[in-house]
Write a protein that binds this DNA or RNA. Structure first.
Lengths: 102, 102
DNA sequence: ATTTTGCGCAACCAAATAATTGCATATATT
DNA sequence: AATATATGCAATTATTTGGTTGCGCAAAAT
């Protein structure tokens, strides 16, 4: 079971869940209401998000509130940052790349 | 065949390929030399990266040079940016999240 | 001209994944 | 106390994925 952040955000439903609970913590049922999928399907997605620590949970009676954990998401941003300058710089960058073909 | 950028970078080998060719364009064989996997396995990864436009190609005789396309990667950064402030702000943010549980 | 090299494509296979269904348990509500 | 609700867990299934093997073709090298 490869369970890393990149694999977790590969699924569009999971990305939607994250944007949803980033605003405020929610219970599985409340989350599931926003999707076509069944409660169990959503719960499985939440479980995956929890396993790679993209979300954490707080028990509140019989309800469980899942909240977004920004720290783990930072790992993606950190991996991305070296590339960032490549799309920020402009056409002179293109020349540089083309020269590598020679 | 869901072929989007998020799914493409979910695989660690594909991420490694991207960091490799971001420096300079490379042929499939040259790329494959950096991995345990076979040439065909690597070629399949490259194909996926090409399909979602994370890499582009330049034919050069019988060799094909694959180069990194930063623009598509920007899509990931763009999706990430709304979350960014969450890990940049500090502990007062934690209180805010905890209050949502009430 | 023959052989080697670089590459893509298609078929196949094992493992992983996403979703469904059925069940169990604990906490509310009546 | 009995019922309803919120949730997790396990088993099952269909689909997707990552990889291998074998093939064909065009461009170099001999």
């Amino acid at each position: 079971m490869r369970r890393d952040v990149f694999q977790a955000i590969a699924d569009p439903t999971r990305r939607a869940i994250l944007t949803l609970i980033a605003l405020h913590a929610m219970t599985p049922n409340a989350i599931a209401e926003h999707f076509e999928s069944s409660r169990q399907a959503v719960s499985k997605h939440i479980k995956i998000l929890a396993e790679c620590e993209l979300v954490s949970q707080k028990q509140q009676g019989r309800e469980i509130y899942y909240q977004f954990n920004p720290q783990k998401m930072k790992e993606v941003a950190d991996w991305l940052s070296p590339f960032q300058q490549l799309w920020e710089t402009r056409f002179d960058q293109l020349d540089k790349l083309l020269n590598n073909l020679k």
